[in-house]
Design a protein around this nucleic acid. Structure first.
Lengths: 231, 231
DNA sequence: CGCGGCTTTGATGTTCATCAAGTAAAGTGG
DNA sequence: CCACTTTACTTGATGAACATCAAAGCCGCG
């Protein structure tokens, strides 16, 4: 172990494999010096719709939701996403200002690098550029296909779908604490809060899930998968 | 004028400004030699969901729709888009196979370049890479925001929204021929065919539009804009 | 001119939002 | 720590929005 490692943890960060794989150690070192880590408590805003984009940000730990506010003031939740997906993913290269807001739904840590630094790397290092493009494309693909998956389902299918999303994609456990309000699930799947709750109650009554306040246990995942498909 | 121009029209193609701005003339020439133009008749499939992606394709003229088929066999239309948006936009850098199908809704011409050629350029030329990333991001942004715009509206708002989309974004005229079936509009906005037709009839009855078969004239665009907002 | 696909309209039923009222839980100040 | 307030959750009743079904008209095409 050389001395650098004491000051820079980026070298061993899991994120390195994802977009920073093609950077040599000295560049990683430089990245690390340019990087700041910011902590956000549950509920805090990370990016605000309309704000100028000056930084490249990615989620190191925690969980965030991407959303926007409609003209009538309602929230539309675009996605809820885990570490190593970009936080400022959408518009960093296409827009001057954020199109959407991002907030922490669990306590989160975000790594922040000046966008110019990333752009510079992007221009100079083709492999890095390709890796970044690929990653950004994948994130966008995922958002779009998720949106379509939700859209094709009815109320029951949508609720089943988010439960499976939490259990399979976010937490990888059958029992977990819902990080969001019932209302936020409603805003995510485009249904009313009352009906989301009603459907959860139905699932509970049928023994598909157990609910203790915020804690949810998936009891019958097969049935949930069937409901997610057939509605 | 030198001799090259006789063989290559890419130099003066409108598309050059959009993503090929940072290529010098000799590279453009090379691009041109690697390029093929393919014509598609209305209704023909350009890319098929699940097919291997080997080419970089962009729409030179015409109009296409991007869509996928759900497990129950229904079509979900993701977007309907004009020239110089990519045809094979979504997954070229993130997936090995097309996630979605693309078909021509009007007779269309598509320019086809081997994806490897583009990837090679991307690696070597930072400005080109940046331009391409920006363009791809914008296209993805547009799809996502369009999807959200549709989702927040009710039936009337959605129909008004597509009419405005055709008149403002696609054709830039108040009178145009609908390039798609009523059913395809329904699949686009996520409503039933019958209700799309009913709503069009309502608009006609209220003097907001005139309909002669496939031809539609927007009579009262202000009212349409109000309906698109308020529903 | 007859056939098939698209469009149109009406009638009916389902799905879902809305409203309202009540309960539980979580935060707040004394 | 308890009373108070607020915010989230839950459930039922009602009505609106939308899908579905069916029948008929239209239109292009062989």
């Amino acid at each position: 172990m050389n001395e650098k490692n004491k000051y820079c943890v980026c070298e061993s960060c899991e994120f390195r494999d994802i977009v920073f794989a093609y950077l040599d150690d000295s560049t990683i070192q430089e990245l690390c010096n340019n990087k700041e880590e910011h902590s956000f408590r549950k509920g805090e805003i990370i990016n605000h719709e309309g704000e100028k984009i000056t930084d490249f940000k990615y989620l190191k730990s925690g969980l965030v939701k991407l959303f926007r506010r409609t003209s009538t003031g309602e929230e539309q939740v675009i996605t809820i996403t885990r570490p190593f997906e970009f936080v400022s993913n959408m518009s960093i290269f296409s827009e001057e200002r954020y199109r959407y807001s991002v907030s922490a739904v669990e306590d989160s840590v975000v790594c922040v690098v000046k966008l110019d630094f990333i752009k510079d790397l992007f221009m100079k290092n083709g492999s890095f550029a390709m890796g970044l493009l690929t990653k950004i494309s994948k994130i966008n693909d995922k958002i779009i296909s998720q949106t379509l998956d939700i859209r094709q389902r009815n109320l029951i299918g949508r609720v089943a779908f988010v439960l499976l999303y939490f259990t399979n994609e976010i937490y990888n456990t059958r029992i977990f604490d819902l990080p969001v309000l019932r209302k936020e699930i409603a805003d995510y799947i485009g249904m009313s809060t009352a009906n989301v709750i009603r459907t959860l109650s139905d699932f509970k009554r049928e023994g598909i899930i157990k609910v203790f306040g915020k804690t949810i246990e998936i009891v019958d995942i097969n049935k949930l998968e069937i409901l997610s498909k057939r509605g």
